[in-house]
């Protein structure tokens, strides 16, 4: 890395919430700005320095031919490429199009479909270019984001757990909403990182941090079916903000095939 490492942020199809998480580091933002040169962060600054960049944060998924080209150009200018958030790591909520007829979507929303240039799919960045680290969450946890930036500034791997959110949920002292209240909860198959907030607010986890390491989705699906959750509702649960992440995608496809058979 150069003397003062450069940090750049690039956006693809997304809501801006993950890059906003950097601006939401109210107590740390100015300290971060002292340690890196913010070379390209259009949401925060009109100053743009040309690449190459040491650390690049990529938000958003690939949904247009233009963006599929643009991410390859970004990769060419980047040393460490980190994807942030469910859109960049799993295709985001807009990956629901992957099960649908996008031309039909365009016609539903827009009067002049011919002005709209879009791909039939919304796909994660890693489907298009090599990615050095994927930070999950919809949105990402800002402290995990700071950890990832700090790690690469110090040439080490980020310390981000891949285990299920049930562990921090227990440590927090939450009453298990699934066991005690029969609430449908995706916690057992979902990666930690959010702080187990949904059960803390008396609702089931909706998997915004994506699949945990080696999730047993099939087993959870069987359990929830046994609890009386309808197949259609199970498919909707799994097809949320990380719908296109492989364990969720294949499990939801199996439920759909099963209910058709």
């Amino acid at each position: 890395m150069t003397a003062i490492p450069t940090l750049a942020v690039f956006k693809f199809a997304s809501c801006d919430g993950c890059q906003l998480s950097l601006l939401d580091c109210e107590d740390e933002l100015l300290a971060v700005a002292d340690m890196v040169q913010i070379a390209n962060f259009p949401e925060a600054s009109r100053e743009v320095a040309p690449g190459p960049y040491d650390i690049v944060l990529v938000e958003g998924s690939i949904t247009t031919r233009h963006d599929a080209e643009r991410i390859r150009e970004v990769r060419r200018q980047t040393d460490v490429l980190v994807t942030i958030g469910a859109c960049a790591t799993a295709g985001g909520i807009q990956a629901l199009r992957n099960w649908s007829d996008v031309d039909g979507f365009v016609q539903q929303v827009y009067a002049h479909p011919d002005y709209i240039d879009t791909l039939a799919t919304s796909t994660p960045i890693a489907d298009h270019v090599p990615v050095d680290f994927e930070l999950r969450g919809c949105p990402v946890n800002k402290y995990q984001l700071l950890e990832v930036i700090a790690a690469y500034l110090h040439h080490r791997r980020p310390n981000v757990s891949r285990h299920s959110v049930c562990l921090p949920c227990k440590r927090k002292g939450n009453v298990c909403v699934a066991v005690a209240h029969g609430t449908a909860c995706l916690g057992p198959v979902t990666q930690a990182g959010c702080g187990a907030i949904c059960p803390s607010y008396h609702r089931g986890c909706y998997a915004c941090f994506g699949p945990a390491e080696s999730p047993n989705v099939g087993s959870l699906v069987d359990h929830l079916r046994g609890e009386g959750v309808e197949p259609g509702d199970l498919v909707a649960m799994l097809r949320g903000f990380n719908a296109w992440a492989e364990p969720f995608r294949s499990a939801s496809d199996r439920i759909e095939e099963g209910s058709r058979a």
Binding site: A13, T63, I93, Q94, F105
Partner: peptide, 11 residues
């Protein structure tokens, strides 16, 4: 901004 089709996939 690439279209994301919220109104369509809410159906």
């Amino acid at each position: 901004e690439p279209p994301r089709f919220f109104e369509a996939f809410l159906r």
